[in-house]
């Protein structure tokens, strides 16, 4: 029983990181109808931002987080202006290719400026974790789960209870109608990129103490996060979170009870199963049911 609980805890912790990155995928998809394949690199940049501010500049951890997230917000705006905005009137494919190009550029840009050496980053707390009768709760995983939970609640309140959130929702649902109603669509899309970059940055900051900081960090997470967003129903926010958690838990249990070498396969077996049996995902509607 304690092993199952241990695996569940770890799976939720890893799954929460997938969920955070998946949220970025979904939010940008809802706002622009394209998939941003550089979402994983946002996490990598967030992790490097922390290394530069805390290890390089010697700033306190909390200040490092604030500066990194501020930099990520600025980066999200620039990403929108450089990668999406010039192609906004083009079809799906050129924009997707543009984001793939941006992800390659970001990875190699960091490699060229920072170098290939992986860096270490301390966790949010010096405490190793809590021990409850054989169940070890790693402090970093606890932080990941708690912060994800808070972000999800804040995000829900923002989208459902604020005018700005409703404007963002309106933009994602029908850009033309939103524009006719006087909503600044370009501004809303800019805000979505800014928020997605910050979310990616938070995911990178949270996972870096566990996986180390390297240029491969983004790719390591992004593929699973992408699968999570499809499993949840692409474009669906609760679905992205549930998909991320499901993948984290299933791959952790599968690795322990079935086989570790096939750990990465479980996420994609689940993905295939959903694509075959429930292509609309966990919470998505069937296309035929939409008005």
């Amino acid at each position: 029983m304690s092993i199952a609980l241990q695996l569940l805890f770890t799976g939720i912790g890893i799954g929460a990181v997938y969920a955070l990155v998946a949220l970025g995928f979904v939010l940008i998809y809802r706002a622009t109808n394209v998939v941003n394949f550089a979402q994983g690199q946002f996490a990598m940049l967030g992790a490097f931002g922390m290394v530069i501010t805390t290890e390089g500049l010697g700033l306190p951890y909390w200040l490092g987080i604030l500066l990194t997230l501020a930099a990520m917000a600025l980066f999200g705006a620039l990403f929108n202006l450089g990668v999406y905005y010039p192609l906004r009137h083009r079809s799906f494919l050129p924009v997707v290719i543009s984001t793939i190009g941006a992800s390659i550029l970001l990875t190699n840009g960091v490699l060229a400026t920072y170098g290939p050496e992986p860096a270490t980053l301390p966790g949010l707390t010096d405490l190793p974790g809590l021990n409850f009768g054989g169940l070890f709760l790693d402090s970093q995983y606890l932080a990941i789960i708690a912060i994800t939970l808070v972000l999800v609640v804040l995000q829900y309140l923002f989208f459902e209870r604020t005018l700005l959130g409703k404007k963002l929702q309106a933009t994602s649902q029908d850009k033309e109608m939103a524009s006719l109603l006087g909503i600044p669509v370009a501004g809303m899309i800019m805000l979505t990129f800014v928020y997605s970059a910050v979310l990616g940055g938070i995911a990178g900051i949270l996972v870096a103490p566990i996986l180390f900081v390297s240029v491969g960090l983004g790719a390591q997470i992004a593929l699973k996060a992408f699968a999570a967003s499809i499993i949840g129903g692409f474009g669906d926010i609760p679905g992205a979170i549930a998909g991320g958690l499901a993948i984290g838990v299933i791959e952790t249990f599968g690795a322990f009870y079935i086989s570790v070498p096939y750990k990465d396969a479980y996420a994609f077996v689940l993905l295939f199963a959903f694509l075959l049996l429930r292509p609309q995902g966990l919470f998505g509607e069937k296309v035929s049911q939409k008005a």
Binding site: I3, Q6, L7, T10, I14, I210, L211, G216, Q220, I221, T252, A255, F256, V260, P261, Y262, K263, D264
Partner: peptide
Amino acid sequence: QSYPNQAADFTPVVLSVKN
């Protein structure tokens, strides 16, 4: 215990060895 390269988490391996 064998694992795929770039495994994000080793909890299952650690628990298997410990048990």
